[in-house]
Computed example of a mutant assay.
Amino acid sequence: MFSVNPIEWVGYLASILIVISLTMTSIVKLRIINTIGCLLFVFYGMIVKAYPVAIANAAIILINLYYIYKLNKSK
């Protein structure tokens, strides 16, 4: 039967959140949902020892947080 390792579900959820974030019209919502997806990808990447995935998504998290901070500061 079709069985998926539980950690793979984390990767699928992360992918879904990244895709959903790209449909947002609000840049703040986009960055928040994208950050959550990236956090899941960091977790996933560390567990499956895909360190480039974890490192790239950690960098994206920092970029998202920086721009969320800038957006909130300008309001």
Rank of each mutant, 00 (worst) to 15 (best):
L62V: 09
T25Q: 15
V28Q: 13
I68S: 08
Y67P: 05
G45Q: 00
G11V: 01
I68K: 08
I33V: 15
F43L: 11
L39K: 03
N34R: 09
L40R: 01
N34P: 07
L71A: 14
I47K: 14
V42N: 03
S3C: 04
L22D: 09
Y66F: 10
S74G: 12
N72L: 15
I27V: 14
G45R: 04
K29E: 13
L40G: 00
I61L: 02
K70S: 07
P6L: 08
P6K: 11
Y69L: 12
I18G: 08
L30G: 10
T25L: 12
A59F: 12
A59K: 09
I32N: 10
P6I: 06
Y67N: 07
S21R: 07
L22G: 14
V10D: 00
A50S: 11
A56I: 07
V4N: 05
I20A: 02
Y51S: 11
W9T: 06
S21H: 09
A58F: 10
L40N: 01
M24T: 06
V48G: 01
A58T: 03
C38W: 02
K70N: 12
I7D: 05
M46Y: 10
F41T: 02
K73A: 12
V42K: 00
I68G: 09
R31Y: 10
S74R: 15
I33S: 03
Y66R: 05
L22N: 15
I60G: 03
V19N: 02
L40D: 01
I20P: 03
I27S: 14
Y69S: 12
N72W: 14
A54F: 08
C38D: 00
I33H: 09
V42S: 01
A50G: 08
A54M: 07
G11R: 04
I68H: 10
N72Q: 13
I33G: 03
K29T: 13
I7C: 01
A59T: 10
E8N: 12
V19S: 04
A56H: 04
V19M: 10
I68L: 15
S15L: 01
N72F: 14
V4D: 05
I33T: 08
K70D: 10
T35M: 00
F43W: 13
Y51I: 13
V48F: 05
N34W: 08
L17T: 06
V19F: 13
G37P: 03
V53W: 05
L71S: 15
V48W: 04
K70E: 10
I27L: 15
L62C: 11
K29L: 14
N34D: 10
I18S: 08
I63D: 00
T25N: 15
T25D: 14
G37K: 04
F41A: 04
A56V: 01
V48N: 03
I16M: 02
T35N: 04
N64D: 11
M24R: 15
S21E: 06
A58Q: 00
P6A: 06
N34E: 06
A56G: 06
I63K: 07
I20W: 00
K49W: 13
V28W: 11
I47N: 13
I47E: 14
A14L: 02
L22Y: 15
W9K: 07
C38E: 02
Y69P: 11
Y51G: 11
